[in-house]
């Protein structure tokens, strides 16, 4: 499978930066992850959940710590489990508590991060894990790509099935209920999807910046569109283009890939702001 991809890249993109296997792998990862982020980002921005996805990203640290405690070689499972638990806990707390949502998310997020740092820094060994903070896309392996591909397919299928329901719930809960939407189920599925995709991608994109990849393309697209289809098309396109641009630039500049991608999408965001100003 991977060989087909490698020869395809050699044939279509005979450039210096595609010469290396790790760049070919990273390119495939970008093509899988970026459209997903663009797609999910629109709903995150609509629901004003940017802070929530940020908290999920940060909780990865605790997931890693728990994995280390349990002696796991690859902490991805403990990260997934912890982020899902945290996501559900935040949703539950939102329903019970009298505090506003951002306060609750702030509390859960910083508690999780603190717990993670406390466990990981025991005995002064935190620097070992600092690679998670900025991520390393170039280290992605064909096995990781296979996992990513499966996640990609599943999320697309779920997204096609629940989008309209989720959209109605995001506009007005009671109205959605009157149209026979199970809003609790739709919200929970959405929360879980975000938890899974953020956690899966975090080791390549980095805890510190992963949330920008969800928010920036959608926020830019919002400035440019007048209906849902344009909104999604722009968001996916901006996400994908900044992903590929960021990857190429990071190769030539020798910089961290995730951060370079975020910078590229930030350029799109500020350009979209300018366009709004010019139009008005």
């Amino acid at each position: 499978m991977m060989n087909i991809w490698y020869s395809l890249v050699d044939f279509l993109l005979p450039f210096d930066w595609t010469n290396h296997l790790f760049m070919k792998n990273a390119l495939l990862a970008v093509i899988l992850v970026c459209p997903l982020f663009g797609l999910l980002g629109t709903m995150i921005v609509n629901n004003k959940m940017a802070f929530f996805s940020d908290a999920i990203g940060h909780s990865a640290l605790t997931g890693i710590a728990i994995g280390v405690l349990m002696g796991l070689k690859n902490p991805i499972l403990s990260m997934l489990a912890f982020s899902i638990i945290l996501a559900l806990a935040i949703s539950a707390a939102r329903k019970i508590s009298l505090n506003s949502t951002d306060t609750i998310i702030g509390i859960f997020s910083s508690t999780a991060v603190a717990l993670g740092i406390v466990i990981l820094s025991k005995g002064g060994g935190f620097t070992k894990y600092s690679s998670y903070l900025i991520g390393d896309l170039l280290s992605i392996s064909p096995n990781d790509l296979a996992l990513l591909f499966m996640v990609f397919i599943s999320i697309i299928i779920i997204w096609v099935l629940i989008f309209n329901k989720l959209f109605l719930a995001s506009i007005n809960k009671t109205f959605a209920v009157s149209k026979k939407v199970n809003t609790v189920l739709a919200d929970t599925v959405f929360t879980l999807i975000v938890a899974v995709i953020v956690t899966i991608s975090i080791q390549w994109l980095g805890i510190l910046i992963i949330n920008s990849l969800l928010v920036l393309p959608a926020a830019s697209a919002r400035n440019l569109s007048s209906n849902i289809k344009q909104y999604h098309a722009f968001s996916i396109a901006i996400s994908l283009i900044s992903g590929i641009l960021g990857l190429i630039m990071s190769y030539y500049w020798g910089t961290a890939t995730g951060a370079t991608i975020v910078l590229a999408s930030a350029v799109f965001y500020f350009a979209s702001l300018m366009m709004v100003r010019i139009r008005n």
């Binding site: 309209n164 007005n172 849902i228 909104y231």
Partner: peptide, 26 residues
């Protein structure tokens, strides 16, 4: 029904979300 004036949702989008199973972004 408060709408952010920049929210990119058209009247048609809203109806299609109710009436259609095909996701409205597609």
């Amino acid at each position: 029904l408060y709408f952010d004036r920049n929210s990119p949702v058209s009247v048609l989008d809203l109806f299609c979300a109710v009436k259609s199973k095909i996701p409205i972004w597609l």
